[in-house]
């Protein structure tokens, strides 16, 4: 039998409770702030973009190329260049990144892993300006022009390879984390059934880590699409570009277009709708990456092999 004391005080310390309330409001403000800033960006983008759409001559949206100063706003030029460069980048990053992730997660001895993982993370931290410069001074002459002697110094291929190098560590580290998060017990089950390393990675670890791997790839695509500096420096076509699918030609991505318009490399202020076109392209970029994120969520949910 439990005897109850005459009176028992369970109200706690009022000061502590008020402190909790304060902390909660601070975090609430922080949370609301980020939502508010996002909204502000959309609103300001949308306003100018609308001005562009409502005033632009529709015919100028489908021309030979992107020459805003001359009133040619061929959006497909930018989209194609963006996709060509991001695609080239992913062609590099997927095999390299996933290969590195598989090696680090499944094959590397603890000693090798100890220095390789940080090395990869350092690579991920290299400023894109440096990579852009490297793309221009190494990839373009030493790789692109070696294989394609006719290639110009500025090509979408060189920029794409540069972007690939940029996002490889991203793919590798995020995928590796996902693969290492796959419980040891699943690997043991696989080995216990007489599977070798390669088939264990392929049939057990990869499927189990697929959500993380897909996330890393989508993240990499977003990053590749949003990358500016490498493209700006190595893809050429500053100020304007002809519409082309050929990676050996110079090209201008959405980001590079915005950068060149906004940095004054290309004096546009007052030139018709050139300034407003920049907002339109920005909004497009925003929508594109948003769509990718939504897609990635869908894919991840669909293919996830849950292991718990």
């Amino acid at each position: 039998m439990i005897t109850q004391p005459a009176s028992i005080d369970l109200t706690g310390d009022p000061k502590r409770r008020s402190r909790e309330r304060t902390i909660r409001s601070i975090f609430l403000v922080a949370g609301l702030m980020s939502v508010a800033i996002s909204a502000l960006i959309i609103v300001s983008l949308a306003g100018e973009a609308w001005r562009f759409v409502s005033q632009v001559d529709v015919g100028s949206l489908w021309t030979l190329g992107w020459f805003p100063r001359r009133g040619f706003y061929d959006i497909p030029t930018l989209l194609i260049a963006t996709l060509v460069i991001a695609g080239t980048g992913m062609l590099v990053a997927v095999p390299l990144g996933l290969g590195a992730a598989s090696y680090l997660s499944e094959y590397a001895t603890p000693r090798n892993r100890r220095w390789m993982k940080p090395a990869l993370e350092i690579l991920a931290g290299i400023p894109s300006v440096v990579l852009g410069f490297w793309a221009l001074t190494f990839i373009s002459p030493q790789v692109v022009q070696r294989f394609f002697s006719s290639a110009k110094p500025f090509t979408m291929l060189a920029a794409g390879l540069g972007v690939g190098v940029l996002v490889t560590p991203l793919v590798a580290t995020v995928s590796e984390d996902a693969m290492r998060a796959v419980p040891r017990s699943l690997r043991e089950a696989s080995y216990g059934l007489g599977a070798n390393k390669a088939s264990t990675v392929r049939t057990v670890v990869f499927p189990a880590a697929i959500s993380g791997i897909a996330a890393s790839l989508i993240l990499a695509v977003s990053r590749a699409i949003g990358e500016t500096m490498i493209v700006f420096m190595a893809a050429g076509a500053v100020g304007g570009a002809l519409r082309t699918f050929n990676p050996l030609e110079p090209g201008q991505t959405m980001t590079a277009a915005i950068a060149s318009l906004a940095t004054g490399t290309d004096q546009v202020a007052g030139e018709g709708l050139a300034f407003q076109s920049l907002f339109f392209v920005g909004l497009l970029l925003f929508v594109l990456t948003l769509a990718l994120n939504v897609l990635s969520n869908r894919i991840v949910r669909r293919f996830r092999e849950k292991y718990e």
């Binding site: 699943l186 089950a189 080995y191 216990g192 007489g194 599977a195 049939t203 499927p207 189990a208």
Partner: peptide, 30 residues
């Protein structure tokens, strides 16, 4: 080769995150 002849069952049930069928078919497929 050893593990194909000497199978193992572990402490915690560790089925693969696959269908019941695919779990059983895993070893034979490999």
């Amino acid at each position: 080769e050893v593990r194909r002849r000497i199978g193992m069952v572990f402490q915690k049930p560790n089925p693969f995150p696959k269908s019941i069928y695919d779990n059983v078919a895993f070893g034979p497929k490999i």
